Computed example of a mutant assay.
Amino acid sequence: MAPEDRDGRERGRANGASAVRRNAAVDRPRVRLDLPRLPRRTFLPEYDPELFGRMSERIARFLGTWRFIAWMTGTIITWVLWNVAAPGPLRFDQYPFIFLTLALSLQASYAAPLILLAQNRQADRDRVEMEQDRVQNERSIADTEFLTREIAALRMGLGEVATRDWIRDEIQDLLRELELRQLVEAEGEESDR
């Protein structure tokens, strides 16, 4: 093979590689900074915290009802009576009722965190509501102070405004002056005659 052929092939390979790089750059989607990145794939389970919180509140709400207490009492009484009065081979939890104790412990171990989670969510809601109330109270106080200043300014301005009584008194004073002038002029005309 001639050295020229080798150089040509190498140049062709180099040009082809750069063409592939350019095409890959064109094919690759542009990174947009105004859009959030897509979440990466993880092998961990994903869950919606709001959905979990709402479920925990429903469960906690149910655990605090008489219906739950009645069902729990009925279940325990049935369990105990079955394991005491049933024929031997049908009993699945003998007298110390270890399986019942385990089931109740398991139920309590799940109920306590769910109730705490529901209480924390309620506390967060209460905190947000208190903050909104505080902001509303501040607005109300600011509005009240503004209105108080405006009323005080109106009262001060009314001190300089002519009232009905003041106008009435002024008109009466003018009428008296006119009557006096007419009397003076009438007397002056009589004395001229």
Rank of each mutant, 00 (worst) to 15 (best):
M1L: 10
M1C: 11
A2V: 05
A2I: 05
A2E: 07
A2M: 06
P3M: 13
E4S: 13
D5S: 12
D5A: 14
R9P: 09
R9Y: 15
E10I: 15
G12N: 03
A14I: 10
N15Q: 09
N15L: 15
N15R: 15
N15C: 11
A17P: 07
S18W: 10
A19Q: 07
A19H: 07
N23H: 13
A24P: 07
V26G: 09
P29Q: 14
R30W: 08
R32A: 11
P39H: 03
R40V: 10
L44N: 04
P45E: 05
P45K: 00
P45S: 03
E46C: 09
D48H: 15
D48I: 10
L51Y: 13
F52D: 01
F52L: 13
G53R: 00
S56E: 00
S56T: 03
R58Q: 07
R58M: 10
R58S: 06
I59M: 00
L63E: 01
L63A: 05
L63Q: 03
G64K: 02
W66Y: 11
F68R: 00
A70S: 15
M72E: 04
I76E: 06
I76H: 02
I77H: 09
W79M: 02
L81V: 15
N83D: 01
V84G: 06
V84I: 12
P87A: 09
L90Q: 02
F92V: 02
F97A: 09
F97C: 06
F97V: 07
L100D: 06
L100T: 04
T101K: 15
L102Y: 10
L102V: 15
L104V: 09
S105Q: 04
Q107T: 11
Y110V: 08
Y110I: 06
A111M: 00
A111L: 01
A111R: 00
A112H: 03
P113N: 00
L114W: 00
L114S: 02
Q119F: 05
N120G: 02
D124R: 00
D124Y: 00
D126M: 10
R127D: 02
V128D: 05
E129L: 10
M130W: 10
E131M: 12
Q132V: 15
R134L: 08
V135R: 13
V135P: 02
Q136W: 15
E138G: 03
I141V: 10
I141E: 05
T144P: 05
E150R: 12
I151Q: 04
I151F: 04
R155A: 03
R155K: 05
R155N: 07
M156E: 10
M156T: 05
G157T: 13
G159K: 04
G159P: 02
A162K: 12
A162L: 13
R164D: 05
W166K: 12
I167L: 11
I167C: 04
I167N: 04
R168E: 12
R168W: 12
I171Y: 09
Q172L: 12
Q172W: 08
D173L: 06
L174E: 11
L174Y: 07
L175M: 05
L175G: 04
Q182A: 12
Q182G: 07
V184R: 06
E185L: 15
E187F: 11
E187V: 13
G188E: 01
G188F: 04
G188I: 01
E190K: 09
E190N: 05
D192W: 09
